[in-house]
Amino acid sequence: MPVIVTDFTWTQTEDAVRVHVPLKGARACKVDIISTDRYLKVHFPPFLFEAFLYRPVDENRSSAKIGNGVAVFTLMKTSRETWEQLMMSCDKETKQQLREEVLLKHQQKLSSQSRSKAEKQQAEKKYLLETMMKLEQDVRDNIQKMKEAERQKTTAELEAWQEICEKTNTNEEEEDLKKKGKTNSENIKQPVRTCKKKTEQKRTPPRTSGNIQVTFTPRVFPTALRESRVQEEEEWLKNQAEARRSRSSGAEDLQELSENEKNPEWLKDKGDCYFRSGDYQSAVNAYSLALRLNQNLLSVWSNRAASHLKLRNLHQAVQDSSQALDLSTPAVPSNAASRARAHVHRGAAFCELELYVEGLQDYEAALKIFPDSPGLQSDAQKIRDVIEGRETTSASW
């Protein structure tokens, strides 16, 4: 059974109505909104706000904003007038009938939008495919034109070379006839045959076969350059190089440590001393160095989460607590205290981030481990009061 929201507020002008609905700690991604010309619904489990509007509104010009723990709706009136109240007065059966009509209309609208979106995507894909095919055809046409131009050029050069050879042969025959002074047909034929032999001897021999060495630009990726995304590939290679440099620089730093500083247990004790003295940043540094030497130390992850919580590094506290919980599997009695401590650290960080639902889940997980702890029971009840609006968020976790 949902909890009806009654602490909403609303204001109006002659043109618009503004409705403020408190979200009671719910995140924006968990809020479900339905708005039409006569109906407004805001659902964030376990709470529900529902309004059957006094007069119709223009849903195309209306808007909604979610932030700072409240949902603000600006509903544009269809006519300039002052409403006597926000919601219309009607019986339960009328509300049920209106609700069914609104939901049916809303579903039809969503279905229409989905079809329009699918048709638009299909049209974009078709246009992209046609464009790609046209570009590929243009490339093929250009290649064919280049081949034809090269063929014509080679043919022209060959014909010019043949003409030069024919002229050379003719000039040699004429010179031989003039020198020998031939007077009869036999004497004329002999130089012709000799000239032909000379011509045959001077013909250019066929070209010898051989291999042409072709080299290509070396690439890290196997795909062709025309099919690659150069910018993304360069960014990936840059990140890989930076990762290798960071690993090599980290190894050099570790080599400069003393024997005690290379002992994770010694570093953990050093961080504990810093934490007890209130020097939380030095504690974080000691714990971080210990984790660089050994990342499987459950207590170090948990203690660093507590130090980050003191320094209000809330997101880092959540990450370290989650890592401690991952290392404490399977759940056995020997690691019960460590699991409860990690849940409390993460729950406190979530509450400081105003994510009270997630924080309550971690505190309830810790209560399952130690159900008789009065401190855990008190903190869990405070979070419930904040979620239900019975207490402000000034409590310290």
Rank of each mutant, 00 (worst) to 15 (best):
E227T: 10
E227A: 13
R229H: 10
R229T: 03
R229F: 06
Q231F: 12
Q231Y: 13
Q231I: 02
E232N: 07
E232S: 11
E233C: 02
E235N: 05
E235H: 10
E235P: 07
W236Q: 15
W236E: 15
L237G: 13
L237K: 01
K238H: 15
N239Y: 13
N239D: 12
Q240K: 08
Q240N: 09
Q240V: 06
A241C: 12
E242T: 00
A243C: 09
A243P: 04
R244I: 08
R244N: 14
R244W: 06
R245S: 08
R245F: 08
S246A: 11
S246D: 15
R247L: 15
R247V: 12
S249K: 10
S249F: 06
G250T: 03
G250L: 15
A251C: 05
E252M: 06
E252V: 02
E252C: 05
D253P: 06
Q255S: 06
Q255P: 02
Q255G: 06
E256N: 13
E256P: 02
L257A: 01
L257Y: 00
L257R: 01
L257F: 00
L257Q: 00
S258G: 07
S258T: 11
S258L: 07
E259A: 06
N260V: 15
N260M: 15
N260A: 15
E261G: 00
E261S: 03
E261A: 04
K262T: 05
K262N: 05
K262M: 04
N263L: 01
N263G: 08
N263Y: 00
E265I: 11
E265F: 09
E265D: 07
E265M: 09
E265H: 10
W266Q: 12
L267A: 05
L267S: 04
K270H: 15
K270W: 04
